[in-house]
Design a protein around this nucleic acid. Structure first.
Length: 907
RNA sequence: GCGUGCUUAGCUCAGCGGUAGAGCACUUCCUUCACACGGAAGGGGUCGCAGGUUCGAACCCUGCAGCGCGCACCA
């Protein structure tokens, strides 16, 4: 810190140290260093979309991972934080296709064809693929970049295909024609997890159909999707519905299409339990091609299937000439008009129902019958059983934080459905299956012989990311080779996983199953679920709302440390985070305060001069003892908070200790010695300050890596340290330990030491209050008189004098009597008088004291009432009883003293 | 419908059985030589509502209300 600027300027500091850490290989994990005394700590990054940019969500997530990783290093562990990116099938292909279309290069992906488009996407990936990883560096993320992985790396792709072949051979992967969720925008099948239900305002249409066998008799049917009427192949009622049971077996004329002859529109009335009496009219139109449940009905009753929708959601010729070619929603309106014109429409009433939307494309999905690949999940039982359930004492190998997510997980695992893993896309892992006539071949290589064609589909992106925990470590599904893989051996299972609860099914659950199936062991021991970042109005941050700040802008403006600190402070365990830029400002202010506290220390002895002195217990003042105890407390609290993943608690403690305790009281009090004339005391004071700051920088390092590293070196703490314990970098300095009992005894740290200083500071506050009440300019030096309850050391007197901004502080004994009406403040330390020498406003003082007396009396009464309750004394623990008695005494003493002052005023 | 979370100072949130707390915002004062990205002193809350358990409840239990989220859904 040769040039000490008044304000902390993060920009140059941050890039300098990141470069240093990376150049020195500080982030690189070496399995060879793992031993009994140097345990492994590992964490795999939730791979961001390869073409993505850093969002506030990433900031939250990766700051937490970085804190955990850096803390583990300071605990002396061998740390692997493994980074990488995900190819993100649909999202990436969409982005590239859109860009090409915008640039006028293509109108449709077929213009390029499969190979050319995939080549374009690779090009795109090479250009933009690294951005988010660079941005993570700006945040300070201490990832082992030498191990960066991508889900479409050749080795990784081989893992994915191997797993497919393996599961196929195990009979868990199969191909089948089923109703799937079809996205008419992305033109692919989706898994159930990729569909989100949304409330949609629409209409419930009631229309009539005539019974063939009973002309003049009509059935009224309620539907929200009249455009699918041409695809109806039956009308169903509940078999026990007395209104309709006599009609079962008869037929109706389907209402649409109108251009088809009546006799071609005859469909049966069937009875099926699925139909509920009291919903709609109790009559259901059965459209096997366009509804999952109705497809099942169709199977039960062997109904024909008429598909009237094209893959991109337009009506087909089978829908009739009036509807053919129309978009499904346009077709809906048109079909209503047709029904109305035909006199078949009864009514259309406003209706809100839930519609499944494609999560990616944000359009309603269509249930669609198609040939897809499915996976019957492996290792379900082991995966379900491994997570500790909230409230359960049963030992479990994996824990969720907060543990309530374990219930959500358990519930999903209990009702687990086969996973549709094929996607009709080009960007991704091609399904390793080839066809020749009726032959099917599944394997890693193209089969020998002519005439084979590979399945055109690719795999769901999550079918590659579920292998992330071990495929990134060089796993190749070869028992012997994997057993010899040093990285896997040292770092699998990983220690912590940090992710959002929104991908608990997409990713977490599936990784657990893959872990058990392929590694025979769980993939991680703890899962920490972050909250979701929202804006200050509580809205989810999104690009379309434009309410998401660019973290890089924030870093440029405030510094990465400030951003990290602000986000951590605002992110309590398991709660969503309402993000406000103010919190980053607070982080910036905090860094600046830290910077200046160190600057102050440097100014005591001059630049770069470090105190060589050991702390001499004989020379410790009550302030020194107090700050050492507070530091000890902070170390305990922060360590505990981190162990429980309570990051906002940890930052709160750090804030309190550093700002409120160290700066506001200790540093201010220490000025009595620093600006005093006792050299020995001064040297000892500096030794204490250096000790506290040294510990403090370590405690802060996981949260504020850049500024702490800069100060660590600038303050000279790195000197004289072994290279692997802070000499080279603070990253490897040891995490502070709480003081042992021996150390406490050596330094004379006990409750009394703490109480004296605390009472002293409390009396200072009271004295400042007196000044204010007496309307004395805080800047004006005035005289105070103190009458100690016990004894006061000279150093305590000096501190009181300084903090009260007193011209003089006279110490008197019990024999001293104050002038009539002299304002006084009282606490355990003694009485503090503000002699006003003839300037006393008796009336004002009477008012002040009366008010104070009232306040104290209320407190006295409160405690007295409690103690007066016979049941209280009888049932309460001794400790609580004593506490109350002591409290009563305190208040009563105060009451007596104020009463005495009032009496003195009256005389 | 089932599950789950939240409701405490103007705002954002801690506290989860024994004297209601923090940060921001607000009021007043202070550019005194670490820091105005600062310092000092203040004001501000019947802890969503109603019952219950307890000597004692913001905290535990029950019900209700409002706001989220997840899952499952009836056309």
């Amino acid at each position: 810190m040769s040039e000490i600027s008044k304000a902390y300027e993060p920009q140059s500091v941050e890039s300098k140290w990141y470069q240093f850490w990376e150049d020195q290989g500080c982030f690189t994990a070496d399995p060879a260093r793992v031993s009994a005394t140097r345990p492994a700590y590992s964490i795999v990054i939730p791979p961001p979309n390869v073409t993505g940019v850093l969002t506030m969500g990433h900031v939250l997530n990766n700051t937490i991972q970085d804190i955990l990783a850096r803390k583990a290093r300071m605990d002396g562990k061998e740390v692997l934080w493994l980074p990488g990116t995900d190819h993100a099938g649909i999202a990436t292909q969409n982005v590239v296709e859109k860009t090409l279309k915008k640039a006028g290069q293509i109108k449709h992906r077929d213009d390029l064809g499969r190979e050319a488009l995939v080549a374009k996407i690779w090009e795109w990936k090479e250009t933009y693929g690294g951005i988010i990883l660079k941005q993570l560096r700006a945040l300070g993320a201490s990832c082992d970049w030498t191990r960066t992985r991508f889900t479409m790396d050749p080795e990784y792709s081989r893992c994915v295909q191997q797993v497919f072949v393996d599961l196929y051979k195990k009979g868990l992967i199969y191909r089948g024609k089923r109703m799937v969720n079809w996205c008419p925008a992305s033109l692919t099948a989706l898994s159930d997890e990729e569909v989100t239900m949304k409330e949609q305002k629409g209409f419930m249409y009631h229309f009539r159909v005539e019974v063939v066998e009973l002309p003049g008799t009509f059935l009224t049917i309620a539907t929200t999707r009249p455009e699918t009427i041409p695809a109806d192949t039956a009308v169903a009622v509940n078999p026990n519905d007395p209104r309709y049971s006599h009609l079962v077996g008869k037929h109706v004329y389907r209402a649409l299409p109108l251009d088809a002859p009546k006799e071609q529109r005859i469909i049966p009335i069937i009875a099926d339990e699925h139909v509920t009496f009291d919903f709609g009219t109790g009559v259901l139109k059965v459209t096997p091609a366009h509804d999952k449940a109705e497809f099942e009905i169709g199977l039960r009753h062997k109904l024909p299937v008429i598909d009237v929708l094209t893959p991109d959601g337009k009506l087909t010729a089978d829908a009739g000439t009036d509807l053919a070619g129309l978009d499904r929603f346009v077709g809906r309106k048109r079909s209503v008009e047709l029904l109305e014109a035909a006199g078949a429409l009864d009514k259309a009433e406003p209706y809100t129902n839930n519609v499944g939307f494609s999560e990616r494309a944000d359009v309603p999905i269509e249930p669609r019958l198609s040939e897809q690949w499915f996976l019957k999940y492996p290792s379900v039982d082991a995966s379900k059983a491994c997570v500790a359930q909230p409230g359960s004492e049963a030992p479990a190998p994996m824990r969720f934080f907060p543990d309530r997510w374990a219930k959500v997980y358990d519930h999903w695992m209990g009702g687990i459905q086969d996973w549709c893993i094929s996607r009709q896309l080009w960007w991704g892992h091609r399904i390793p299956v080839w066809y020749r006539d009726s032959e099917v071949y599944c394997g890693l290589e193209t089969p020998a012989g002519d005439g084979w064609t590979q399945d055109p589909d690719v795999l769901d992106t999550w079918f590659s990311s579920w292998l992330w925990a071990f495929a990134t470590m060089g796993w190749i599904n070869d028992k012997d080779a994997d057993a010899k893989n040093a990285t896997l051996k040292a770092f699998y299972p990983t220690t912590d996983l940090v992710t959002g609860p929104d991908i608990i099914f997409f990713w977490v659950a599936r990784m657990i199953m893959a872990g058990y199936e392929y590694m025979g062991d769980l993939p991680f021991r703890n899962v920490y679920f972050t909250g979701i970042i929202r804006d200050k109005q509580g809205r989810k941050m999104s690009k379309s709302l434009g309410n998401s700040p660019d973290p890089l802008d924030l870093i440029a403006k405030y510094g990465a440390d400030a951003l990290r600190f602000g986000v951590m402070r605002a992110a309590p365990l398991g709660q969503d985070v309402l993000f406000d830029e103010q919190t980053v400002e607070l982080g910036r202010n905090f860094c600046n305060k830290l910077w200046n506290a160190c600057r102050f220390r440097q100014m005591i002895t001059g630049e770069g001069t470090q105190s060589e002195a050991e702390i001499n217990p004989a020379l410790l003042t009550s302030d020194d003892r107090w700050v050492l105890l507070r530091l000890d407390q902070a170390i305990r609290e922060v360590t505990q908070a981190l162990a429980e993943y309570k990051f906002s608690d940890a930052t709160t403690t750090l804030y309190r200790f550093f700002w409120n305790e160290y700066c506001d009281w200790y540093v201010e009090a220490s000025k009595a010695v620093i600006y005093g004339s006792d050299e020995a005391l001064k040297v000892n004071k500096v030794a204490v300050i250096d000790f506290v700051l040294g510990q403090l920088l370590r405690l802060f390092h996981p949260f504020l890596p850049f500024i702490t590293e800069e100060l660590w070196h600038g303050m000279g703490f790195a000197q004289d340290m072994p290279d692997n314990q802070g000499g080279k970098t603070l990253m490897f300095a040891l995490w502070p330990k709480p003081l042992s009992d021996d150390e406490k005894e050596y330094f004379g740290l006990d409750d009394t030491a703490d109480a004296v200083a605390q009472a002293k500071y409390d009396l200072v506050s009271l004295g400042r209050g007196l000044r204010r009440d007496c309307k004395i300019d805080p800047a004006k030096k005035i005289r105070f008189i103190v009458r100690p309850a016990g004894t006061l050391s000279p150093s305590d007197v000096e501190v009181l004098k300084l903090l009260l901004n007193a011209e003089a502080l006279e110490v008197v004994d019990a024999s001293w009597a104050s002038d009539r009406g002299t304002p006084v403040a009282v606490n355990a330390l003694g009485e503090l008088f503000l002699p006003l020498a003839g300037l006393i406003d008796f009336e004002a003082e009477r008012t002040r004291l009366t008010k104070e007396l009232e306040r104290v009396k209320i407190e006295v009464t409160k405690v007295q009432e409690k103690l007066a309750n016979p049941a209280f004394a009888a049932k309460v623990p001794v400790k609580v009883l004593e506490e109350h008695q002591a409290r009563l005494q305190d208040w009563q003493v105060k009451e007596a003293q104020i009463a005495a002052s009032l009496a003195n005023l009256a005389s």
